[in-house]
């Protein structure tokens, strides 16, 4: 029901998540699931409508790019 999107170790998943939440995304940080789990985002996809999948992913990508640029 979800995907695990790994982030580079130097990139904080909690910071990325905070940026995404400002856009209305509700992912979960992988580092919140345990010690040494690495950095990443858990993205639920089963409640994303088929026709919304691509635009949603593009918005997510834009959000992450924006975060990297900050």
């Amino acid at each position: 029901m979800h995907l695990v999107m790994r982030l580079p170790a130097r990139q904080s998943d909690r910071a990325a998540l905070a940026a995404l939440r400002r856009q209305g995304h509700a992912a979960v940080a992988l580092s919140d699931c345990g010690h040494g789990a690495g950095q990443g985002l858990l993205l639920g996809f089963t409640n994303v409508a088929v026709d919304q999948a691509a635009p949603s992913a593009e918005r997510l990508a834009a959000g992450l790019a924006e975060r990297r640029a900050e």
Binding site: M1, H2, R22, Q23, G24, H25, A26, A27, V28, L42, L43, G44, F45, T46, N47, V48, A49, Q52, P55, S56, R59, L60, A62, E66
Partner: peptide, 25 residues
């Protein structure tokens, strides 16, 4: 002014990518 991309009415949900939700619609 937040820089976030605009969303059309009904296009997006504030809970997009939330874990554990089946196809509620």
């Amino acid at each position: 002014g937040s820089g976030a991309p605009p969303m059309a009415a009904g296009e997006a949900s504030p809970l997009l990518f939330r874990l554990g939700l089946p196809a509620l619609d």
